[in-house]
Amino acid sequence: MNTIVSEEPQALSTYPSAQTPRHRPSSWAVAWDVLRRRPTGLLGLAILLFFIGMAAFGPLFYPAELPSNPSNIFAGPSPAHPLGTDFQGTDTLALVITGSRYVLLSAFLAGLFTAVFGTVTGLISGYYLGVPDSIITKLADFVLTIPSFPLLVVLSTVWKFGSPLAMGLVLGLIGWGALARAVRSQVLTLRERTFIEAARGLGFSSVHIIVKEIFPNITSYVAMKFLLAVTGAIYASVALFFLGVLPLSTNNWGVMLQFAFSQAGAMYTTQSLPYLLAPLACILLVTFGVVLFLDAVDEMLNPRLRRG
């Protein structure tokens, strides 16, 4: 790390003039290069792709109404049912696969909304300062103070979170505060740097400076926060269904956990352990994938960490 940083001044001095554009490797090439040198990152990506594939194509292999068999409830693992069956005799593996779509799609959207809201408010508040800054800072403090799960429970009386979009939007709306604060503090230091001063001196508009000059400096940070927000949103949406305040009509990992927890007998027999553990294991595996992939993402997007 140290040696890489010390190379920076040299790199700056050899910064190519406009006449001789230096050849820059494409971002795909950089990404592949980083992944090749970091097998753990590759493993993380593989795990994530596996789950994305499961959410995208898995439900296609199953009928909309999964078959149940009342005479074969809480069955242990068998060739026909690799993860056993639930309280209705439905195959647990089928439940896990069909249940992944809602959870992962809503988590992805929640991460996206969190990243967009947090970045936009943070950029505005840090760059313009003054009135917009104090309004946004107060709002962010407010959102950060209200405990999110009690709030989500209260909101569930009005909002049924039926679609992944609704879930993602609400989670984004209550989750942007921390990112906004962090982006703001980064913008506060960036805006005093000489290259921003130069851009201002050249008469670029504020929007141009924010989008073209400041934002590229925080993309890697925002991308990491996006991935972390996705894992946070998986927990939040699963937890909300687990609490039992949302309609349990659709199938997803949270609904599975709620049934495993609340249906008589499920918590008391070791036979049904796969039913309880399967959604938990999936959630942990996705988190594991994100954490492994994060390290590599950091290196892909942050040129200072990249080796020449």
Partner: peptide, 17 residues
């Protein structure tokens, strides 16, 4: 990395039921 409700759920399963 493990969500709180999972820890609680596993504790309840292992040490209470």
């Amino acid at each position: 990395g493990i969500p709180q409700f999972m820890v609680a759920l596993l504790l309840a399963y292992l040490l209470a039921t």
